[in-house]
Nucleic acid binder design. Structure first.
Length: 260
DNA sequence: ATGTCGTAACGTTTACGA
């Protein structure tokens, strides 16, 4: 079961590049972030004609997440539990019925949090605490689940080309990293680091200042796996090359393969 | 040179979020 996460930075602008990638990537499941569209404006046909069912949780202009799947989906839920007042579309869950095993899949777009300090940073940290609470609920089931998406977290200095410029940023501040570790440390496995160690692996390059040409990137898109899902992990890779194509997103896809 | 995108709207330009 191949599952990808891809922050597309606007579905309208990405129809061409996203379609090309879907054709060649051959994923069973894809979680998307930053649709920047309401559900009615998502071009479902481009996914359905490729064999995917489409579950969206959209929002005008900002945020918006989706799950695409060639495998049957069950029990789709939208929104991160823990705050009835939160209207930002950043979270969706569904159970993917694999040939051998069902996997609960969570797609997320974690708040950026800048500037620090301020209400946006407070919202980020509170959102991360809600995510941890949800992960703990799922852990108690002792079943395969995964949380995939744009975490807006640079876990360690080795995950940035220039860690010094991110020191005071919401993506790398000590409080942000601690909140991320608090989620991981309930017993989850970060898929990429379970397979590949060392610096120089990124999923995001800013559009500005020639960041891509200088390989000035950061690794902020992650898969966290429950123990039962980690047992099934056979691969995890970043599709770096598509950042160099026409009209790219500022993120690239990261994907895992599960024996499920 | 403080650098680029994507989206929306009281739109041919500005504001916001990233």
């Amino acid at each position: 079961m191949k599952i990808a996460s891809f922050n597309i930075n606007g579905i309208k602008a990405r129809v061409g590049a996203l379609g090309d990638w879907l054709d060649e990537a051959d994923m069973d499941v894809v979680v998307l972030q930053e649709l920047k569209s309401v559900d009615e404006n998502v071009p479902r046909e481009m996914f359905e004609e490729r064999g995917y069912s489409v579950e969206t949780h959209g929002q005008k202009s900002f945020n918006g997440v989706a799950i695409l799947s060639k495998l049957p989906l069950e029990d789709v839920t939208r929104g991160l539990p823990g705050d009835e007042e939160d209207e930002q579309a950043r979270y969706i869950e569904a159970t993917v019925m694999g040939d051998k095993t069902a996997v609960r899949g969570c797609g997320l777009y974690l708040p950026n949090g800048n500037p620090v300090p301020g209400p946006k940073y407070d919202y980020k940290l509170a959102w991360m605490d809600r995510l941890r609470a949800r992960a703990q609920e799922l852990m108690a089931l002792e079943e395969p689940f995964l949380m995939a998406g744009d975490y807006n977290i640079i876990p360690q200095d080795e995950d940035a080309k220039r860690p010094e410029v991110w020191q005071e940023d919401a993506l790398a501040r000590p409080e942000s990293r601690a909140a991320y570790r608090k989620i991981v440390n309930i017993g989850l496995t970060e898929a990429f680091r379970a397979r590949i160690s060392g610096p120089g692996h990124y999923t995001f390059w800013d559009y500005q200042a020639g960041a891509w040409n200088r390989d000035d990137g950061i690794r902020i898109d992650h898969f966290l796996l429950s123990p039962q899902a980690a047992d099934l992990l056979t691969d995890c890779q970043i599709d770096k090359a598509i950042r160099g194509r026409e009209k790219p997103s500022d993120h690239v896809p990261i994907w895992i393969d599960l024996d499920a």
